[in-house]
Design a protein around this nucleic acid. Structure first.
Lengths: 176, 176
DNA sequence: CCGCCCATGTAAACGGTTACATGATTTA
DNA sequence: TAAATCATGTAACCGTTTACATGGGCGG
């Protein structure tokens, strides 16, 4: 259950409204923990109910816009969560299931789907590389920046591995 | 929604009862798509309702044990699913969220949790390697066996990457 | 016969997804 | 002022998780 803590993290970096948060999420933490705007609004309401954040209406602004900021209790909660023992995240990889199925009842037209999937991963990889070139082109001594860069690199590694995976699967499937 | 198709795949490989299936799952497909016995029983009931599998009571056996076998309609369904265009699976990586949080409110005692996590991944990696040595030590021309081996290798790559990830994160965190 | 385990199953709570609703602000 | 858009939210559904329930063999 990481969403509330991901939101707390983002709000500590900078307070903002629900919609802004959803947007920022798409471009940073969202690469590793996606959330729709409905989830975000619901979770903000819960966090407010628990006294972790406070949302104050933006004076005279459009819509019912509210700016959420993290309360001390929220920081404490995030710190508490951070030192919990993390369980290895349960693996749920549909692609593997597909390949096992293909092994049993194949051949099907899975090759084309794999090629398409590889292309999608290539696009995501390019996005990551651009972010890296823009935000992390020079070395830094600051640990927090190193961590952010590191998280991005992990994303790059992941996409790279996925592409190689698709390509090797295709070459095995073609070998028949 | 891969669980029903993972179950169909396993049952095509060999018909068996729900409990056996849960056990087999733990040692093969379960590495990539975990499912509790409750999920499996419920899904079997659904698959039977849909006419994809048929469960016949094991004659005179203990408990209400039933053996499930896949019906032609089930094979057809699996084939249909297999050629659907797969969406890239949504990424949900709690560890990344933790590191972002650490970057914002750290330092905490995350290092020790990471070391523990790395150890868990090392254990899983060893299990995979043993399976590989036992079941896939010699080359084969059969595509289905190549695919099964390939899926296992992907698991090995994944665990290896995770271990490296934990270790690098630790070394960054120590650098302060 | 009693207690334990095994196979099966039910129930409740929760997170995530999708579709839709409300009200205010900008724009044509 | 009507239409489009934005910010916020509600409702219903589905899969997953956890805890508990039933009921039949088996060992003492």
């Amino acid at each position: 259950m990481s969403l509330p803590h991901a939101l707390l993290t983002a709000l500590i970096e900078r307070s903002c409204s629900g919609s802004e948060l959803a947007e920022r999420f798409d471009h940073s933490i969202g690469y590793f923990w996606q959330a729709s705007h409905q989830q975000i609004y619901r979770e903000l309401a819960r966090l407010e109910g628990a006294g972790f954040v406070h949302g104050s209406p933006v004076g005279g602004a459009r819509g019912g816009k509210k700016t959420y900021r993290v309360l001390p209790k929220g920081v404490k909660e995030l710190r508490r969560w951070l030192v919990e023992r993390p369980a290895p995240s349960p693996v749920r990889d549909e692609l593997m299931v597909r390949l096992r199925a293909e092994a049993v009842i194949g051949p099907t037209r899975l090759i084309e789907e794999l090629a398409c999937l590889a292309e999608q991963h290539r696009e995501k990889l390019n996005v990551y590389r651009e972010i890296e070139a823009k935000d992390f082109s020079q070395k830094t001594a600051r640990v927090d920046e190193q961590l952010r860069h590191f998280v991005l690199k992990a994303g790059i590694d992941f996409e790279t591995q996925r592409i190689a995976f698709c390509e090797e699967a295709i070459s095995i499937l073609k070998g028949r």
